[in-house]
Structure formats: structure tokens, C-alpha cells
Design a protein around this nucleic acid. Sequence first.
RNA 1: GCCGGUGUGGUGGAACUGGCAGACGCGCCGGACUCAAAAUCCGGUGAGGGCAACCUCGUGUGGGUUCGAUUCCCACCACCGGCACCA
Length: 707
Amino acid sequence: MEERYIPQKVELKWQRYWSENTQFKTDAGTERDKFYCLEMFPYPSGKIHMGHVRNYAIGDVIARYKRMRGCNVLHPMGWDAFGLPAENAAIKEGVHPAQWTYENIQYMKTQLNRMGLSYDWDREVTTCSPEYYRWNQWFFLKMFERGLAYKKSSFVNWCRSCATVLANEQVIDGKCWRCESEVIQKELDQWFFRITRYADELLEGCDRLKGWPENVVAMQRNWIGRSEGVEMDFPIDGTNEKIRIFTTRPDTLWGATFICLATGHPLLEKLVIDKKKLNEVRAKFENTEEKEGLFIGHYAINQMNHEKIPVYIASFVLMEYGTGAIMSVPAHDQRDYEFAMKYNLPIRSVIQPEQWPAGEGANQAVMNEAYEDEGMLVNSGQFTGLKSADARREIGKYIEEKGIGKRVINYKLRDWGISRQRYWGTPIPVIYCKGCGIVPVNEEDLPVVLPEDVKFTGKGGSPLLDLPDFLRVACPRCGGEGRRETDTMDTFVDSSWYFVRYCSGRDEDALTKKHISYWMPVNQYIGGVEHAVLHLLYSRFFTRVLRDMGILTSDEPFNNLLTQGMVCMETLKCPEHGWLFPSEIKDEKCLHCGSPVLRGRVEKMSKSKKNVVDPDHLINRYGADTSRLFSLFAAPPQKDLEWSEKGVEGAYRFLNKVWGIVYNNKSNMIRSGSRINKFSVLQSSAQSLVRKNHQTIRRVTNDIERE
RNA sequence: GCCGGUGUGGUGGAACUGGCAGACGCGCCGGACUCAAAAUCCGGUGAGGGCAACCUCGUGUGGGUUCGAUUCCCACCACCGGCACCA
């Protein structure tokens, strides 16, 4: 009688076996080499999607492989459980965020188990539990002590109708993603983490991220955006004010023919008398792509050549970068060039290609774009004749000696704003006291528990504001009347250190140094490339902060990073009914109206475009092994994977074949799966099977080790 | 504009880091089983030529290094991704 392959039966048997024998429990013993294998933990949105299947299938292969190679493997899983969707569900459906979240976790956990993933669930982490987030608060207090957490006023995206701050990602075409009303910039007091203190180290560390994909490292470098230059003062003629500018090209100082200020530059308030006009101009310049400018009626003095040059407000100058003011050198900067052409300002060349004979640049008549390359200085006083790179160095020294400027390093990286005017997050452990000001909560009073008996009106504003019991608190310093902070932390705080929490057992202290130094850093991290800057940069920052607190010994959290590609699928559209699920078409026609279906582009699976496959259906129909095999087999892990029903069937047939080869084999030894002690007694067909098996082991080993 | 990546049959993609290009899967063609179909199994499948053993060409394009290049070097083309008035 032939044995048939029934995946559901086989998988259930082994999943039961694994769970009864606690196969994947992390070994406390430290004899063997450790291997920390981690996949990015999911947000408990309700159901897993194909992206999860792919991510976790890849990680599971590595974890199982390392176990078989004799490593002591830590392979944990958890939940990034704070966040907006839970709160939105509360507003929409009246279910408490905690209930919504925990129910989702429960369901998704059964899904992950059905996939046959080898996790040590004893170390499960749920970021919305007080046991977890108390450490967010503890880190916050420690960072506050060190000046790494601070409060300042800053501009944020604000939706009037929802009465809340929005993250940049939640502003779509300048409108609120939820109510589609206009988003404005509002100045609010916000908490920040001083990530910029580590900017240099985070940048230098990029050179040592050998196990990371180059594009991710490049994105990190780009995001940090270091540039060297000088800051220099331009006194304003007839006043006591000075404009401080930043430039990376001090070698072009003699070519500066005007100054531009950002619309938000503070000096404008002092220099411009007509405030009405000023505000009009600001409004006009705010959202324009054009290069707009306006002369403000003042002149500034270039302290290199004592020349008087006009001062403009300009739409293209950013307040957030440098000093919010620039010297404009139209001959050597394309933007300045365009601006100068538009407003008929002088263009003076001070750098020319080295091959040119000296002096030619001086009477260079025709120029149709800025010359931005390196070259030789002309018309530049005592620096004429120097190469531009040398001139930058010499001029930098010169202005420092003369006390008219200084050499500086600038970063694009901004401090990390962590305040959220939301309920479902970690309460920021701070109390405001009339007498003492900002007072941190005492360590022994942690955690500041997020109250659960709140009402969700959807009107905006944190529901915590309606809770006097939470709000009113004695000042820890003077005992007087205090008020709690109602802002919560950005959920990226939760995920910036969760990999450290896994190192110790659930019942142990989260920061048991022995365990952390044993397991950290993560040997292999796997997740989507969409976190290339945010999560991965914050985690690198947190790792360094924890190192400086003496909790960690490594500089970097993740030795090797694998960013898996997206799972994609063709989109289908009906002219009448819009996007269609694959199940809504038959014979190339829409099931609802019979119109011919338009086949669209292959795009990332998304619910809104209905080009999705539900892992539940897949597992019910073909089994978990087929799902896992397909997602590993259809494309290399780093690349995008295009969904193909045929491909899934192929994977299923393949497993069928393997099953048949083993269970319907003529050899008893093969069939029973007993250990082959004597190769020579096997029949020749069994011998070739054993040989093939070993060849396969070798190939798989090579493939995984090479990654 | 700046940074990064990719380019191999009809198709998804392999090729042990310079050594028989196209593994494995999908599709297609032929055969077996069947009254028939599905499923399954066996064989074939880069292009051109030859009855045949075989021969010639072939990894985006053009050059180079080498006994030998999909792999290394130079230039170019195309596509994809990230950032972007960053001074």
C-alpha cells in the first residue's frame, strides 16, 4: 500500500512533537558556540501576511541549520505591540486597544506555530506590557540624567480636526491620512533623544558593517549626511546684526555676490519692518518648487573682500540645515546661478579649471551653468592660484585666525523626536511641578502604568487628559502639586532594544549582564529593507547608549543583516469594479459584470490593491512546508519575489516526490528512516539516494555559509 | 543631481569566488497509464547547422587582462531602488 503525502497530518505530528519536547528552548549552557538568529518582530495587525511568511521562513532555515551544526541557538519571537492601528480600532469599533492587540497576538501566534517555525516562546516579548515598557521608561530616565533626553519646542505636523501630531509618514500630499484635512506646522514642546551626539560614531561605524547590504549602509551614511565646512559671519551694513552662514565651499568666498535667508530665519523679524509683507512672502514661498526671492533692503559685508552685497529672502534655503542662511556664489553653485539669472544679480567666477591659462576666468563672458568642480582660484586676493581643495583648508585656518568664522561639521541627522500625543504607547515618566519644573519620576516608582479605563472619542487629544487620577500626582522632589506628562513615546523606542530583552529569560531581570554579553550582538538579523534607516539606525544608537551605561559590551547590535525583498503580485482591475482579488476573475473576465480584466503591474502585495494571498488559505490547501519551500525557492532572499500559483504547485509536487522517494522506497532502512551504518549492504538504488542526500547536505551547507 | 543595485533561455532563477553556462522549478513538446480527462510517471527542450557522431554562435553593448571570463579591469547603454533646493 502506497503512503500518501498529507501535509496537514505530517506537519501536525511534528509540531506537536516539537512543542511537547520543548525542542527549541534556549540552552543556558555556554559550552557550544552561540548563535543569535533574529527576525524583525511583527506589529500585531491581525493576521500574518506573505511578507511575514517569507521573512520567518528564511530565519527559521538559518536557526535550524545552526542548531544542526551544533550551535547554541537563540531564536525568539515577540510583538511590536504599541501603535496607532490599535487606537484607531478603538475609536472605530469601540474595542479597547489592549484587547484588540492581545487578541491579534493570540491569533497570529497560532498562525506562526502552524507554519512550523522553531521559536523559543519562553522568551516572547510583548512591548505593550508594563513589564516590557518599564525599561523604556528606565532608559528614558538614564538618558535624561545624561542629557540624552531633553525637551524643546519644535515644529510638528498637526491635524486640526484630529487635534493631534502626525508622523511624516501619515501626511499624504500635505493632508491628514485619516480625515484628509489640511495638515499645518505647529510649534509644540516635544521630547527628543540626542542621537546627534552619536552622529560621528554612527557614521564611522558604517565602515565596519561588513555583514550588511551595501545599499542599507549607504542609506545610513546618506541619512546621517556629514559635511565639513565653515561658518562665517556677514555683518549687516548700518546695524549691529550679523548673518551667520554655513558653506562647504569657503574656496568660493570671493565669488559671493549676495546672501540668502530662509523664510523662517529669526533675523527677518528684526530687519524687515513691513511684517504684513513679510508674512505674505513667507506664505507664498512656503510650498513652492520655484526659486523665489525678495531683496529685503539690507546689505551685508563680505569680510574677506569687504564688499557690500544684497540680502535676500529665498524660497530654496532651508531653516533646518546649517544656519538657515547661505552666501550665494552663482558662478559655482547651480541653484545660486538660477537665482542670479532670475533676479539679474552679478555672477563672478573665482574657480577655473586648472588647465586654463591664468586670468582667463576673469573675463569669462559666457556661462550657461555654474562651474561646480574643483579647480584653481582666481580673483581671490592672497589665495589666488591655490587649488580649491588647498584653498578650503587655508581659508578655513585664515578665518579662524581672524576670528570671523570657524570650521564646523554639519549633519543632516536631526535629534529624534519621541513625543506622541497618543494613548497607546509608553508613558513618558516625567512630572511637571509648578515649583520644580520638569521632574523625572523616581526609579522605584516605575513603571508608570498606562491606565486602561479610558474613553476613546476620536475627537483627538490624548484620552489621558480626561483622567484626573492619572494626571494629578505629587511632585517627587517637593511633594507639591504636580501634573503627569500625557505624551507617550514613539513606538520606535520599543523596537530599538527588544533584541536585548530576549537575551534574558522572561522571569529574569531584563538587564542581566551575563546573558546580554553572552548573546549580543545578534549574529543574523533578517527583515524588510523599509527599516533601512529608522529602526536600524535607532537600534545602533540605542546599542551605543546602552554600552555607555555599561549594560552592553558591543558597539553594534546586528553583525549580519539580510534584507529580504518584497513579495509581489500582478494587480487586476475591472473597469467597473476597480481592483479585483484573483478569486474575482474567471476566464479573464470580472466575475461581477463580465468585463474583460485589465492586468496591471506586478507590485508589492497590498490589501488596497487586492493583489494579496492569505497565508491561511495557502497553508490549508498545500501545508506549511509548501508555503515555506515556495517562498525560499522562487527567488533569492534579497530579491523581490513574484507570487506564482504554478510555482506553489511546483513546490508541492516537489515535496510529494521527496515523500514518495522515502516512504515508498524498496529499502527497509530508507523507509524506516533508521541510521545507515553500512553503506555497502544497501541496494544500489538506495546507495545512490544516500549519496544524493550527502551531496545535497554539502550544497546546502555551502549555500548558507556563503550568505 | 547624488548614492546604491541589477542585467544569463519562453519564464523565476543556478553556476562551489576564474575552469564543461543554463542546476532546480514553471511553461512547452513527445510518450506511458486511462474508454476519456485530471493526477502521476518517463523522455526532450538556448540559437543555428548536420542522417549522425558532432560543429559554430551564445550571459545588456564595446574594448582589455588571461591558456581560459557570466565571474576581474575600463568605457557605454538599459532598468530598479533610496535620498534630494542639504549650501
